[in-house]
Design a protein around this nucleic acid. Structure first.
Length: 642
RNA sequence: GCCGGCAUAGCUCAGUGGUAGAGCAGCGGUUUUGUAAACCGUUGGUCGGGAGUUCAAAUCUCUCUGCCGGCACCA
């Protein structure tokens, strides 16, 4: 006699065990039709789930946040059924839900083509339309292994064989097709309406590059067509933000075949790049850092000593010179900074000693990893190494974290997530040293009052690290900053200081980067702002233009004035209509367009227009400069529009 | 690195074995113009590199390079 308690507190009793679907029907036909799954005592189940005893039950409809995942999961099954219907000897493997959709990996004798994809999608619609019932059944594990082996599904059999023998396996069937799955699923394929297959790609079996490559089909699925179309629209918008496209359109930089993974900075791009460096230099100087510069090319023996050649060698560029010496191009700045530290006898009184470098490093990245500015082989780091005593780790880390978060705020990144990465499998140094380094970093992080998540085994080969992840305007995560505690490298490279008892001690080295790679940070900024860089960074801040050539003299005069105020300005005196000029400079994302016609000249004013198309009216050149100064000083927190 | 796709004018792209095209940009001219595209004319290509098949290759084959989407990698 199960008594079912509904979310509103009302209770219904039944004479015998009932299914979720039956309870829904007893409440109303509309609810029964809308039911996607059930939540029995907070556990998600199918609508066919049988409630044996007293339980709390919520009918999961589209309004429930869990509905979308269930639909995506069921759509993955629909995909697999369609593939096996069209390609019977394709084997299924796994098909999980991912952000915005799902994928399913198949083993097949040949890669799927885009034509196959269209056919598969058509088949999916056909099956969805047939509204097949989705049925769950249980099978003992060993029987399930045999069942899938008999079907020729060796991957599936392998997955099941890894499940403990006493756990029964649930199988889901729709029509004549069946798959292993934990569930829950929609009650019938007709519930799946808004979906689209996106792309095919290779993916390694079990995510291991030593294994064979499977065919992965990606799809997206939503509650309705509107959500689906919104999603497709979002993708288009994201593509318009692509930094590679903006970089070309705004003439910021280019890359070419002869220099894979390296950037040719054009004047405008380099202006922004220099702006980033100038900003960081100012912040670092104020925070007690000293800027240094170390060689890009150093003898391989030094890199052997540091451990880089052994642990990092496959990512390093080396060069053999005519005198038969082997040099390595630096992939990191730390060994160079240790050399600077080692010059002369260091005293504990000098610590903390903070060395910063805008160091250009080269790393041989796998060709398939290269991606615009986001993943390059030659890049500039805002890299610093802080030499401290063990006692200083906490205080210095607290200061460092504060500086990092402060700087991110200036760029409009208020949401920063922190990850703690502990010892990786490939590392130098004794475990006892790692124990010490990890606990010191955790203690310091806690002292800074920062929440963090654990990133197991992802530390640097010489020490644990904190990673700072920024969220951009369209919700994507970007790992930028890093803070690392290193109890290994200084000792390996023979760095010492003399303590208050005249004892030689090995310093602790804290590695730090805030932008990370300036190239990458530049790319993130471009995408975050969709090319509309804040005025303080914009390569051209103001363009002056006239209506006819009668205003030229006036404009040249104003231009000189603005330039003398330190603004980056251009004049556009071309024989073009003002609408045409406005269009061009707006597309170039120039923050402010100043227009002068005969009226403005007569009144000694300027008509001010923003790149977002807003008309700010006319004002004098002095007022414009004054108001712009507020925007520049506040780093865009207050603009002319405010 | 692995799987797949792509590579034609500065950019975006047509061109499925038979004389390389369009729009925009550029250049020359006309136009003196009021807040997101004035008009006319015109230059521009070893069709990514190399090899092969063919009477004939942008087009078919092989190979190299790069890029794009994933996977792996991101020390």
């Amino acid at each position: 006699m199960p008594v079912v308690t509904l979310p509103d507190g009302s209770q219904r009793s039944f004479a015998q065990p009932v299914t979720v679907a039956e309870v829904a029907t007893s409440i109303g036909a509309g609810l029964a039709r809308a039911a996607i799954a059930g939540r029995v005592d907070d556990r998600l189940v199918d609508t066919s789930f049988v409630i044996e005893g007293d339980a709390r039950l919520a009918i999961v409809t589209e309004k429930d946040p869990a509905a979308l995942d269930i639909i995506r999961h069921s759509t993955a099954h629909l995909l697999a059924q369609a593939v096996q219907s069209l390609f019977p000897d394709a084997q299924v493997t796994i098909g999980p839900v991912i952000e915005d959709g799902f994928y399913y990996d198949f083993a097949y004798k040949r890669p799927f083509t885009t034509e196959d994809l269209a056919a598969i999608e058509a088949k999916m619609r056909e099956i969805a339309k047939a509204d097949l019932r989705v049925q769950r059944r249980l099978m003992p594990r060993d029987e399930a292994v045999q069942f899938f082996k008999n079907l020729g599904e060796h991957y599936k059999a392998e997955i099941i064989a890894a499940i403990p023998a006493n756990e029964p396996i649930s199988l889901y069937g729709q029509g004549d097709w069946v798959d292993l799955c934990r569930g829950p699923h929609v009650p019938s394929t007709g519930k799946l309406r808004a979906f689209k297959l996106m792309k095919v790609a290779g993916a390694y079996w079990r995510g291991d590059s030593r294994n064979e490559m499977l065919q992965r089909i990606y799809g997206t699925a939503w509650l309705n067509d509107k959500d689906l179309n919104d999603y497709l629209h979002r993708l288009e918008e994201a593509e318009k933000r692509d930094h590679r496209r903006i970089g070309r359109e705004l003439n910021l930089f280019h890359m070419q075949e002869e220099a894979p993974g390296a950037v040719f900075w054009h004047p405008k791009g380099w202006s922004v790049f220099q702006g980033l460096i100038a900003y960081m230099r100012e912040k670092q100087n104020a925070a007690g850092y000293q800027e240094v510069n170390a060689p890009e090319l150093m003898d391989a023996t030094l890199w052997q000593q540091s451990g880089h050649l052994e642990k990092f060698g496959e990512n390093m560029f080396t060069t053999r010179t005519p005198d038969e010496r082997l040099y390595a191009i630096k992939p990191m700045n730390c060994p160079g900074h240790v050399q600077i530290f080692k010059q002369g006898l260091r005293s504990y009184r000098e610590l903390p000693l903070r060395f910063g470098e805008f160091g250009k490093v080269h790393r041989y990245e796998p060709s398939g990893a290269l991606h615009g500015l986001m993943r390059v082989r030659a890049f500039t780091q805002d890299d610093a190494h802080i030499f401290v005593t063990e006692d200083m780790i906490t205080e210095e880390t607290v200061r460092g974290i504060r500086l990092l978060l402060d700087i991110y705020k200036d760029f409009g990144f208020d949401q920063v997530q922190v990850k703690f990465s502990d010892r990786p499998p490939k590392r130098v140094g004794e475990d006892a040293i790692w124990d010490k380094a990890e606990s010191a970093l955790i203690a310091a992080t806690q002292a800074a009052g920062v929440e963090y998540t654990l990133n197991k085994g992802e530390g640097a080969f010489y020490g644990p690290k904190l990673e700072f992840v920024l969220k951009d305007a369209i919700g994507r995560d970007w790992q930028c900053g890093t803070w690392q505690v290193d109890l290994n490298m200084p000792g390996r490279l023979g760095a010492h200081y003399v303590d208050e008892h005249s004892q030689k001690r090995t310093p602790v080295m804290l590695h730090r980067a805030i932008f990370g790679s300036l190239e990458r940070f530049f790319g993130i900024l471009l995408e975050h702002h969709a090319g509309k860089l804040p005025t303080w960074l914009a390569p051209v801040q103001v363009v002056l233009m006239g209506i006819t050539d009668r205003q030229n003299e006036y404009l040249i005069n104003v231009a000189e004035f603005l330039r003398n105020q330190g603004l980056r300005i251009e004049t556009d005196l071309r024989n073009e209509k003002v609408g045409f000029k406005i269009r061009e400079h707006t597309l170039q994302r120039v923050p402010y367009l100043l227009v002068a016609g005969d009226k403005e000249v007569a009144a000694n004013l300027l008509s001010v227009r923003t790149r977002s198309g807003k008309d700010l009216g006319t004002m004098s050149r002095e007022t414009f400069v004054e108001r712009l100064a507020i925007e520049l000083e506040s780093r865009g927190r207050r603009t002319l529009e405010d």
